[in-house]
Design a protein around this nucleic acid. Structure first.
Lengths: 240, 240
DNA sequence: TCAAAAGTGTTCACCGTACACCCATGG
DNA sequence: CCATGGGTGTACGGTGAACACTTTTGA
């Protein structure tokens, strides 16, 4: 029996009876990377209100799940993926953000490998990938959430190598650089970039080469998660 | 008539009827600075559950206020202060975090000038300032909230001069340094510190001296908010 | 006159940034 | 053989960090 269960016994449920309750939702800002571009997965709402308009994928918090659970559930419903990088962003609680009813929403941002998601599920949800530069007007305060998520993604990327979640398992230095350029929205010198990345010492250089995009062929790398965790645990700073 | 009001007319309130609602609370981690130490304002709960134990100051979200409103209200009730630096930290939603009833809580952190708070109100709430090193065990997951707030305070301080909220209007370079040392929990070379601060060019050096703590007397400074805002607007980075 | 805090400059190591040429290969 | 992308090293300036002595004045 946990401490909490003990407490629940000692203190009967009789204290918060007069308090208002609200609807709590989660909304997911889902990032992917393809064609050298950062993309966002949006759904076309097939229910009222705002049916037919573009929206973030969201859902309500159930009584028997945490907010992280709810966000995972929502993400899984849309993409079929589990164990996705997911991070709480911020809470939105404006009184009229949802015209139907007072709803407070917790925005989550997720990074997924765009090749791995389940195309059938995405179609079933009438979802679609949008380039960041072509994000349409979204319902409620969802555009604001997206802006905040982009800002957070840029910040996070600059201090932690989370970007790998967005790439295939094996990738070239060039692909990684393109990803960083897309996230940070600026071009990077390739010599400085590869130097910086190499000295982080969290990549595994494979013997294979990728010959699709060049004649010479470019070495493939893997993210070395074990090394990364060790270094992270020792307080290593991954500033890019 | 706002867009939201229009929408509310077009789409009647009939969509979310089957969804669970939860209690939403705010909890405030309130920092102050005194005697060269960072302190935390905690209350002794005078109601069940956990009556008599130490806790963060908190309250429930009402139907007609945003979370920021709720946090301000809670803070005002305890300190009598308005216009306090307040920032949303993170949401806590573990199923059993509150043994009485499922409650989701949004943690806020606040920085206040310890000299300005209303001593009567604090006494009325049986609140007390604790040094960071002497924070007692708190109810629920409040210790976890405190840890997260400290981390965030350290991070924020290193990229933005928010620490001024914690000092009196006029302060010496020494006091400012002590504050940074307390927040970052490390000692700083005073030559490097004053050089760094001076070159940020956001302080106003006054003609007055503070002669309380030394015979020679130390120049007093003011935070130059106008200059700061200008620089911040131009993308100036305040890295300490 | 002395104790206690204030105030102030220089040096060095490291890091970020700018920058250009040769290599391998498929067509 | 040439066009295309891959791969690599160096030089410079700026910033963070270490470090010590003089000044003032009340007691």
């Amino acid at each position: 029996m946990t401490v909490m269960e003990n407490l629940a016994k000692i203190f009967p449920k009789n204290n918060y009876d007069n308090q208002d309750k609200v609807l709590l939702a989660v909304d997911c800002i889902i990032f992917g990377f393809d064609d050298d571009e950062l993309k966002l997965l949006l759904i076309k709402r097939n229910f009222q209100p705002e049916k037919g308009k573009w929206s973030l994928m969201g859902g309500f918090l159930g009584m028997n799940e945490t907010l992280n659970d709810a966000a995972s559930r929502v993400l899984n419903n849309l993409t079929g993926l589990n164990d996705v990088y997911l991070e709480q962003l911020s809470v939105f609680s404006d009184l009229e953000r949802d015209p139907v009813e007072r709803t407070v929403s917790v925005a989550y941002f997720a990074l997924i490998n765009i090749k791995k998601n389940d195309k059938k599920l995405i179609r079933a949800n009438s979802a679609q990938w949008f380039s960041l530069s072509e994000v349409p007007p979204l319902i409620f305060d969802h555009n604001e959430m997206v802006q905040k998520a982009i800002k957070q993604l840029r910040y996070k990327t600059s201090i932690q190598p989370i970007g790998f979640e967005l790439l295939p398992d094996k990738f070239t230095m060039r692909q990684l650089q393109k990803l960083y350029e897309a996230i940070l929205n600026q071009s990077i010198d390739k010599r400085n970039f590869s130097k910086k990345i190499s000295q982080l010492d969290i990549l595994l250089k494979l013997d294979e080469k990728d010959t699709i995009s060049s004649k010479k062929g470019a070495y493939l790398y893997k993210f070395d998660e074990k090394k990364y965790r060790q270094k992270a645990a020792n307080g290593f700073v991954f500033k890019l």
